[in-house]
């Protein structure tokens, strides 16, 4: 019996990781004068991430939704730890946390109507109301804005990854929702790496120096083209896309991944920090890893739903 596509994908991840591990080892051996600790710890963290993904995939779609909910919780907690807050709003934060299991309950139950409006409409209204009860008006707009923005970024946007598992499709695929999840997550992370490598090799013209001085047009475009190419190659295995839609989804991921990346960079620059946290050794915080995904996830989801839902 042939291996299910999702397991082919996971096996591919482990092979890639093995190659990366060997490459880091060889590099460190060949250049003993250079410091590869960060690269090594980054690779080690990838082992944990891929191990977690593999276990969750083995446990099935429902487990995956719960897992994404937990990641969302960690990301929101990191966000809330990072941004300046008013002490008076502590109880409001408590309610914001309560929104996470509720949002993922809509996902789990496949309740699309509430899934799309719960945070933008109901939580929005409730937060404004609850903030009023604190009686503090100085910094009100900052408090309301910061909280709502964080909930959209880390909870609402990421929950779209979960809804991929329960979204009914007009053309069924062997890989199902798990395949779409794998496709968007892998391509988003791949795009990050591809943009980085293209930038390192050929980067000359800065694209947005005030926000992210390392980003170049060469890196962005090179990564984009590579991601589009890979999206076409992988589409047959994981998605119902034909070649044009695959290319379009790849372009979507390449562009929005870039925007998500520099958006989180802008937040960090605003606050004067290098990393969003330290949850992932060698990478920084959770948001440092999920930055691109917070933007690609909802837009990829709606792309799928509009054309194949």
């Amino acid at each position: 019996m042939a291996l299910a596509p999702i397991w082919l994908g996971m096996a591919g991840l482990w092979v890639l990781l093995g190659v990366a591990g060997v490459a880091v080892f060889v590099l460190a051996r060949a250049n003993p004068e250079k410091d590869y600790t960060e690269l090594a710890s980054r690779t080690r963290t990838w082992v944990w991430i891929i191990l977690a993904l593999t276990s969750v995939m083995a446990m099935g779609d429902k487990a995956a939704i719960i897992f994404i909910g937990f990641i969302s919780f960690l990301a929101f907690k990191e966000y809330l730890t990072l941004v300046p807050n008013r002490a008076a709003d502590r109880r409001v934060f408590f309610w914001a946390y309560i929104a996470i299991p509720i949002q993922f309950w809509w996902v789990y139950a496949g309740y699309y109507g509430f899934f799309t409006i719960f945070i933008p409409v109901y939580v929005f209204t409730f937060i404004a109301f609850r903030l009023l009860l604190t009686g503090r008006t100085d910094g009100f707009i900052r408090a309301a804005g910061t909280l709502q923005w964080g909930l959209i970024l880390t909870v609402y946007n990421l929950s779209h990854l979960g809804f991929l598992f329960v979204l009914p499709l007009s053309q069924s695929t062997q890989a199902g929702g798990a395949g779409l999840f794998f496709y968007v997550v892998f391509l988003t992370q791949f795009n990050d790496v591809a943009q980085y490598i293209w930038g390192k090799l050929f980067g000359r013209h800065k694209i947005i120096p005030l926000v992210s001085p390392g980003k170049t047009w060469e890196g962005f475009l090179g990564g984009l083209v590579t991601t589009v190419a890979l999206s076409i190659v992988l589409a047959g295995l994981f998605t119902p896309f034909d070649v044009y839609f695959a290319a379009a989804s790849g372009a979507l991921i390449g562009v929005l991944g870039f925007v998500g990346d520099i958006t989180v960079s802008a937040i960090k620059r605003d606050l004067g920090v290098k990393d969003s946290g330290r949850f992932l050794p060698g990478h920084g915080g959770i948001l440092d890893r999920l930055d691109s995904l917070t933007f690609t996830a909802p837009l990829f989801f709606h792309f799928v739903r509009y054309f194949y839902g």
Partner: peptide
């Protein structure tokens, strides 16, 4: 740092922070 945000004096509701 942070524990006083998570559970300050005189409060009993735990709010998660790193």
């Amino acid at each position: 740092h942070g524990l006083g945000k998570a559970l300050p004096k005189g409060d009993f509701v735990l709010v998660p922070f790193f």
